[in-house]
Design a protein around this nucleic acid. Structure first.
Lengths: 144, 144
DNA sequence: TTTTAAGTTGTAACCATTACAATTTAACAA
DNA sequence: TTGTTAAATTGTAATGGTTACAACTTAAAA
């Protein structure tokens, strides 16, 4: 039935309309939205929704491991539903983030190395920076 | 001789006292300092140094590929001299960043995959989040 | 239904970073 | 050495994402 309700309960989080909406939004928008983008979209339907709630909820869901916070963008945080383990490519020019559905097969070896140091790993992030296909093409046209 | 002078010239950057000092600082402090930490340290010796210069220079050096900007910390940027390719582990509790001198041997396979999509890779970042050895130990003592 | 800890809301503040315009300077050429 | 100019530096003011906080509301258990 209500998957998201179950999901929240599983993580010992109170079920509220706000949390469900935010969760639904992030799960269905694979565009790595910012807090503001989520707010701008949801505020149309729920005018009483507060931006602070967006921030609080994103923090809560991140801590629970339900979503992940991307610190790839230098100016703002982006959020991503934790579907499966994957990495990211961010374009320096247009800022668009692309999912990289390929993870290092040796990540466990690295993790063992870190564990050997005594640290406890809770998140694994990989990201690549550069110029995306679209921006390269635009330049190609412009510069011959 | 003056390695940093050469380094700047190689990248077609004007050689200024400010750039040399900032470069020297980042190269010799492997603590992944913030712009403010660099400023607080250098302002003692060079009171006329402006914080804007710190930001400008870090931006310039990052674009040149001489240093790298870490966006691991959610609240502020950290900088790292580009000695060799390595990854990072950041403690969620104390915020300290540890160097991970081990990179994915299959990173080139991933890169080929990204290149196949048409994107151009300019930076590769890997980071792990969790609780560091020191923070775990402190908790261990406290909780028996 | 009552209770209460937890969640939500709006406002105000915070603070890292950037914009901008004036001043200074590195680097090149004469 | 001197003059020239584009680039770098500086200080101040503004920006904007995020957080602090206190009042209000509500989910959920008794």
């Amino acid at each position: 039935m209500e998957t998201f309700v179950e999901l929240l309960k599983t993580h010992n989080l109170k079920v509220t309309q706000q949390r469900l909406e935010i969760l639904r939004y992030v799960e269905s928008h694979l565009t790595h939205p910012t807090a503001d983008e989520i707010f701008q979209s949801l505020t149309k339907k729920y005018p009483s929704l507060s931006k602070t709630t967006i921030y609080n909820t994103l923090e809560t869901l991140t801590n629970a491991g339900i979503i992940q916070r991307l610190t790839i963008c230098p100016t703002e945080h982006r959020y991503d539903f934790n579907h499966d383990m994957h990495h990211h490519f961010i374009c320096k020019q247009c800022g668009k983030i692309f999912d990289i559905h390929f993870t290092c097969p040796n990540v466990e070896t690295i993790e063992k190395d870190i564990l050997k140091d005594g640290h406890r790993i809770e998140e694994v992030h990989g990201y690549f920076r550069g110029k995306c296909k679209d921006c390269l093409n635009k330049e190609g046209v412009k510069n011959g």
